[in-house]
Simulated scan of single mutants.
Amino acid sequence: MIALKSIGKNKNRNFLTMLGIIIGIASVICILAIGDGFTHTMIKGMGNHNMRNKVIIQWEPTSDYNTDGGFTQNDASALAGIPGVDHVKLTSSVAEAGAKAQYKTKNFSIGLNKQPKHLKLVKGTYFTMTGASNGVYISEDLAHKLFKENAINRLISIDGTIYEVQGIYHIGSMEYRPDAYVAKTTFKQLFANQIIKDQAKIYVNDGASKKQIGKAAVKRMKQMGEEKKTGKYSVSNPDQISKQFTRILNDVTYFIAFIAGISLLIAGIGVMNVMYITVSERRKEIGIRRAFGATSSDIRNQFLIESVVLCVIGGIIGMILGYILVSIINAFLPFKAVITPYAIILSLSVSTAVGLIFGFIPSNKAAKSELVGLLKEE
């Protein structure tokens, strides 16, 4: 309470002193929010990987000309025979097929996939296409390339087969989708043969060592794999890749936040300066308190608390300003910036630390003032 009263006596001067703290904290809050939001969006786009009781073996071609390899059913049977393995499922790391889309004289290479369970359309009506349907959903970008006007119910050719446009969907700048979706049956009949099975998902029994099974699987494929001459086998860990990617993004965010936080150093010097002025102006008060028995520690704590309170108030205002700025920035970002509890705790900790560090020297000077010297001045 005493600290607040002392700060209130010089509102304008103390506000200008806090301004550096406010700007610095608001900048750090904004940068951390943008970095955390971008990281969250990218990791979400990469997908969540449930690796419990699962080992993934990846096949990669040793040459750009040998891309038709992968795992076969014989490979799956060989992997299933490893002790501790429950069953094996062959999949592809890329489920998208390539195709040529054509409308009149316009021709484009596109990525194509089977119809998902849910798809939000900006035009048209979504329904589940059954059988060998000739319907197709296309992206806004592809619709704009092929058609100048409404694309709904138009006919386009994809690899020589005619399809009717049933709907158009939007692809956000921070998400990935293929250019078109066709019925599952159609995709399986016409396009699935393009996709190689370059991943073997090995499901292990409870209690079995995933690490040992992974090593045994790679060793067996190197010996028995039908495509061992055209490619190489390795254990794939998508969770580890996601963690490394997250760590890199976080390191970049924290580095930029640190650069922005340099302004807090300048603000801290301003706090030290104003505390020196405060000590000089209140030497009479210090002398009276010392005369009535206040110890050096009491004097030091009084001015140190004022310094901390000054910085914490600036930090709180900076956080409020940062929250407002993040809300405004979110209107222009392709992803949502997120203010995490970590950013709030860090901001409060930094503002408190600035008050302690830069307020200590002036406070210590006040504490060491000799009573005799103070009384002589008066």
Rank of each mutant, 00 (worst) to 15 (best):
73 Q>S: 07
52 R>M: 14
62 T>A: 07
95 A>W: 14
54 K>T: 05
48 N>G: 12
83 P>C: 07
93 S>M: 12
82 I>E: 08
76 A>M: 08
48 N>C: 01
90 L>S: 07
93 S>G: 11
104 K>Q: 15
96 E>L: 12
117 K>Q: 09
66 N>P: 00
104 K>H: 11
61 P>E: 06
46 M>H: 00
81 G>D: 15
110 I>G: 00
113 N>K: 06
86 D>K: 14
63 S>T: 12
81 G>H: 13
111 G>I: 02
44 K>N: 06
126 Y>P: 01
53 N>W: 02
67 T>A: 07
52 R>Q: 15
115 Q>T: 07
66 N>Q: 12
49 H>I: 01
112 L>V: 03
114 K>A: 12
128 T>C: 04
105 T>W: 07
62 T>Q: 11
115 Q>N: 07
45 G>F: 00
71 F>H: 02
81 G>P: 02
128 T>S: 13
42 M>D: 01
52 R>C: 05
89 K>Q: 15
116 P>H: 09
88 V>N: 02
125 T>Y: 10
121 L>K: 02
86 D>P: 04
86 D>M: 12
55 V>R: 00
120 K>N: 13
83 P>A: 10
107 N>E: 15
115 Q>C: 08
46 M>E: 00
103 Y>E: 09
74 N>F: 07
66 N>F: 10
121 L>C: 05
60 E>D: 09
82 I>F: 10
85 V>T: 08
72 T>F: 06
108 F>N: 04
